[in-house]
Simulated assay, not measured.
Amino acid sequence: MKYSKTIAGITIEICEKAIGEDLVLTLSGGEKPHIGCVVQAVPRPSLSGDGTISVTSSVINLTGHKDEFLCRRLAENRCRETGKVVVCTGGVHMDHITGEQIEELLKNIDRMMTE
């Protein structure tokens, strides 16, 4: 599956592929898409004991990259939704991105997967 949307003037693309029972998400966008981060999200029973699914994540960042904010959110949310192991990798780059654009991306990235 492929999802594409323009958020805060930045075109974002998310691709999802099943690998056996697991999922791989790739995130790209902006002027220089790249791999700046890899997040692996693993589902587990919540420690609260209420039957909900929680997530334990492992993250690998390239030095100086901030892509974890988006990749982690995508991987963890998709992991909770599906109960599957999810890996998300990729990166979004915009020269001179503003704090407002980053906040808008974070607020709207979840909607891309649910719409």
Rank of each mutant, 00 (worst) to 15 (best):
H93A: 06
K5P: 02
D95T: 14
D50W: 08
Q101E: 11
K84D: 11
Q101H: 05
C15L: 14
E115R: 06
G51I: 05
I60Y: 15
S57H: 12
V92Y: 09
D50T: 04
K32M: 11
G20D: 02
S4D: 11
I7W: 07
E103Y: 12
M113I: 14
L74G: 06
P45N: 09
E76D: 13
K5R: 14
A18G: 09
G83N: 06
E103N: 12
S4K: 08
A75C: 06
V55L: 10
N108C: 04
G91H: 01
I97N: 06
S54Y: 04
D110A: 10
I97E: 11
L105W: 04
H65M: 04
D67M: 04
E68R: 11
L47S: 13
Q40H: 09
H65F: 07
T114N: 13
C37P: 00
I12T: 00
V39A: 02
V42A: 03
Q101K: 13
H65T: 05
I12G: 00
T52E: 15
G83V: 03
G20Y: 03
V38E: 09
T89K: 06
T114E: 14
E68S: 08
I7E: 04
A8L: 08
G64Y: 07
V39R: 02
M113C: 11
G20N: 07
K2D: 14
S48Y: 15
V59W: 10
L27E: 02
P43H: 03
E31M: 10
S46F: 09
V59P: 01
L70T: 03
L70M: 11
M1L: 11
N108W: 11
E13P: 01
C88L: 05
Q101M: 12
R111K: 14
K32H: 10
S54A: 15
G36S: 07
R78T: 14
V24N: 10
T11K: 11
E104Y: 05
V38T: 14
T82L: 08
P45H: 09
L74W: 01
V87Q: 03
T63M: 07
G49N: 08
V85W: 00
L23A: 02
K107I: 07
S57N: 13
V38C: 12
E16F: 01
E16A: 14
I109V: 15
D110W: 04
G64W: 06
K66G: 13
S46T: 10
K84F: 01
G91S: 05
E103G: 09
S46R: 10
G29V: 00
E16P: 06
R73F: 00
E31N: 11
V92D: 02
I109Y: 00
C15Q: 13
E68G: 03
V87A: 08
N61L: 12
P43A: 01
R72M: 06
S4C: 10
A75G: 05
N77R: 12
K32N: 12
N108A: 03
A41V: 10
E81L: 08
I7H: 08
G51F: 02
